[in-house]
Design a protein around this nucleic acid. Structure first.
Lengths: 224, 224, 224, 224
DNA sequence: CATGAATGAGATTTCATTCAT
DNA sequence: AATGAATGAAATCTCATTCAT
């Protein structure tokens, strides 16, 4: 996915169709990001079903019709939103991961970064945890495509842990990834639904503790 | 919640208000369940936003207006659906749990039962994992109220495991519950989104394995 | 109209069809009046558009279906209501008029009685002045038929006044009747819309004063 | 009220809120009046309850949705209709009144203009006398607010008559106004219900005669 | 490039009336 | 005679998208 997220931004390939070039150019224009940021605010503050195109346009300071110069339709705004934000999100995590060695530590950094980034942008947290899930099945499948890069990253860490002997060799990679993502996701959702009353970041360590143990890491076990 | 789910069914108390009696009577009439079952089918096959009241009525074999003799409005159908199904769901799990001793085993039975029940009723699985999440925030809050009973049950098992020395005494109950529910939920959702291609039930054991280890259970650790 | 209002009640004529006899018999049964009185209360308290048949049935203490044993349809309730109440209303005024000699005095008694009867039954006042006017054109035409007897009574008094030399011989009977009814009606409506805050009865004399002068009566003119 | 009716049309005041400016701009666009005129025709020809928004839109030559760019909801069409038409109605009468001196003559002109304007626009007459009265209480209260300006105008004339010694000094202003409006209104309603068979305009003089006498004007009294 | 007025399809809910018991 | 559960037709309003300017 990381590829797919960075797709448009890194692209220099002349062989792409004129159509896509048009879109690529648009993605670099200031109004593109302006509209996406407006969408995040409007959805977070009004909820998914009350986030009309006209509201997003007003928040972005453009006319309704202008939206359609940058996005194919409303769904495209939401997918692009997810791509943009998720792209940055995963990029940041990947950068941080480079400074870490063991799989267990990478897991910790991933969880910490996940929490940190959503803690810092509660609008985005509300949108991704609550509002965007109200979209229809079709859109959620597309969102899952975007998410796939992040899930792959998790699976890579797990594989590394198994290979390096940190994690149990019987571990089912796919299930472990579903556990890690499911746990992180449920934790953030609960935090958002509780109106961010408590500090999300301090949950990273105990959650990492559970995840590592679940993966068969022995580092937390009491030495006799 | 378990109480609240069983609320109407077990009630014999004459002191309840006329209003509630009216509703209770309706809940016990055959058409009530008939409409709910129709709603599950229609939502699963058409998607949340394409599940018009008229479709549900037709599927249930009643007139559109009849729906409104049993339900306040469309949202009420969905809440009642969740209450009825979740009620049976949790009741079944509770019954099975009575035959089990240790917290770890209870966790296994819970996961197995969770998977078994949704495996057996894929319509219901689709509705709870994908479609009902498209409902608006207000409805989701009501659904969460119903869910709370299930989450409490999980927490009770965790507490028991800690008390009995099966689970680590440092375990954060609330986080552990979020992990268990998040993991199970993500697993089922992935399975539904993959169109139930594989056997969900056989995932119960490996997932239980991870959960138990995450909780600090030693039963899976290799004896040296 | 007075005839038409008393129509059913005074009827002994064997030549009427079986159908009508059925209705006549019904009109004398207690539930007939019971339902009409319920309708007055329900309409006054809930408004015309919130006066559902089921509400009237509940207020009358009968089943919905029972209404249709006594009335052809909902409109028939309202027409019957108007006939019953208007019949009594006009009968009472006619009785009082018998004790009065001059046209001017008859006018005064009519106005006084009109006000007195509506003052005493504010439910009825609300229904006739505000709520029943929301009915559709067709029903209002039928109501006007019932009203006709009352209007005829007014015209008779005016004619008498002209014949006896009390009123101007140039007076247009029909217009004078429209003035009298229009004035009384507007006065009562204003009173009802002001939530019966003031005493309606004490308006009878000044209004009569104006009506009599308008008719050319000299009795109030200052003697030089 | 006269002010309130002219409110939007005369306004040049920059200090008004953005919201109201939006509405004012809409009120001056051609489609606003186009829709109102369509509403008058549709309501007159189909009756209040058969005047669906889609019929009004079709008659106005716009899409259903366009209605909602100019009116908050269906009720708002009706209120605006009444405001627009009543505004013009009262303005016209006020203009004509400027050329008249005595209160009695003003009363005559008022009645003549009232009849003339409704005679010339029978659609409007049907709507105001019959159809709009079927609206619910809430709407009728709003209509009454609009009407208030007209009633105030009547009261002003009456007051003038009293002050100038034309009318009896014992005259109750409020009752006199209720008489005048009630009489005019009843006359027009009767005329409309008789399907405008006769000439309404020629009733102005005899009605004025009665009204003036009722107010104590001596001008019609035979000089001995 | 940008605008924003106009479009029009589509669904929930109410309630008078019926009719089997 | 009385019941009351069931019926089903019908209409307002929203909002994503377009296109003339």
């Amino acid at each position: 996915m990381i590829g797919s997220i960075n797709y448009y931004r890194n692209m220099n390939d002349d062989s792409f169709s004129f159509f896509w070039k048009g879109i690529i150019v648009k993605r670099n224009r200031p109004k593109f990001k302006q509209i996406i940021d407006a969408a995040v605010v409007v959805i977070a503050e009004n909820g998914y079903h009350q986030a009309q195109v006209s509201k997003i346009a007003k928040q972005a300071g453009v006319a309704d019709g202008t939206i359609y110069l940058y996005f194919k339709n409303k769904e495209d705004i939401l997918i692009s939103l997810f791509q943009e934000k998720m792209g940055t999100f995963v990029e940041t995590i990947e950068t941080e991961l480079k400074q870490v060695k063991t799989a267990s530590d990478k897991l910790l950094v991933l969880i910490q970064q996940h929490f940190a980034q959503l803690s810092e942008d509660t609008h985005l947290a509300i949108v991704t945890q609550l509002e965007l899930r109200q979209s229809n099945k079709e859109l959620r499948i597309k969102i899952n495509d975007v998410l796939k890069g992040y899930l792959d990253l998790m699976e890579k860490i797990i594989q590394e842990g198994i290979t390096e002997g940190e994690f149990s060799e019987e571990l089912d990679k796919k299930l472990a990834r579903q556990m890690i993502f499911g746990t992180i996701d449920e934790t953030v959702t609960t935090w958002v639904m509780n109106e961010q009353k408590y500090n999300l970041n301090q949950l990273a360590k105990p959650i990492h503790h559970m995840m590592a143990r679940a993966c068969g890491s022995q580092i937390f076990e009491k030495k006799v």
